[in-house]
Write a protein that binds this DNA or RNA. Sequence first.
DNA 1: TCAAATTTGTTTGTATACAAATGGTTTTCC
DNA 2: GGAAAACCATTTGTATACAAACAAATTTGA
Lengths: 140, 140
Amino acid sequence: MSIGDYRLEEQIGFLLRRAHQRATAIFSARFAGHGLTPTQFAALAKIADEGEVSQNRLGRLTAMDPATMKGVIGRLSGRGLIAGRADQEDRRRTQWRLTEPGAALLAAAQKDGFGVTAETLDPLSPRERATFLRLLEKIT
Amino acid sequence: MSIGDYRLEEQIGFLLRRAHQRATAIFSARFAGHGLTPTQFAALAKIADEGEVSQNRLGRLTAMDPATMKGVIGRLSGRGLIAGRADQEDRRRTQWRLTEPGAALLAAAQKDGFGVTAETLDPLSPRERATFLRLLEKIT
DNA sequence: TCAAATTTGTTTGTATACAAATGGTTTTCC
DNA sequence: GGAAAACCATTTGTATACAAACAAATTTGA
């Protein structure tokens, strides 16, 4: 019968899920005033990097599939933080860019973005932080 | 204006989200034949550990809030993998346990559970794995 | 060149994740 | 003993996450 020796607490998926939950909770607390979710903030930051970007490409840059991206884009554009224009060269595409309010919100929120990472990594020493980030990237 | 120097790829929340996505994808591939999601498998494994457990307690053990737990419990019991009975001592509680088919499915799936962790950690050396797990637990 | 393959974006459906509010039940503690 | 506090479970609503199927547009390649 022995359902033995499988320990949920030692499985990497479970640990990653919990760590991600904690990071999300820290994000939510610090971003309550901005009204942005982690994925919405990621999308704004990447649109700013790119200047102008299509929906699918933005999804690849932020690790969201097309169906998820559609929802995120819809909520951001619904709030007037981003605006889209039809691409003349490829009529399947819409190119998205920050609006002025979107750029202002992103600028105001960025220092809190750094704060989230700092607080999440707080239990680690500087040396451990570097190691952890290196290994985390390796398994991604 | 300088929207500068915030790099999404260096933020811990983004890295954890991507790593968790990869772990989930590996899980899904290996568990396709079992028809279990990561949270459903976690719930089955913890119920097996506990013998009998209430819904909220199971949620604490598996890191799911009550609303999420309700859905997971509903799907597992709907498939006949777990069964509940009213707790006599505390009439708020339902105690959940594995059914015979649930125990059989868990037993059949467990080796694949180890496989998920192994494949997810494959890019790391044994030494790196130990370090990574230690640091991951520290930030959780 | 033109059919096949790929890409972009949408829709539908299922499954977490969590906030907030609620109704019962049990525990605490004065 | 009884009111206040805490706890169990549910419900509603919003937001990812992703599979699968689809239409339209573009690119590829024989």
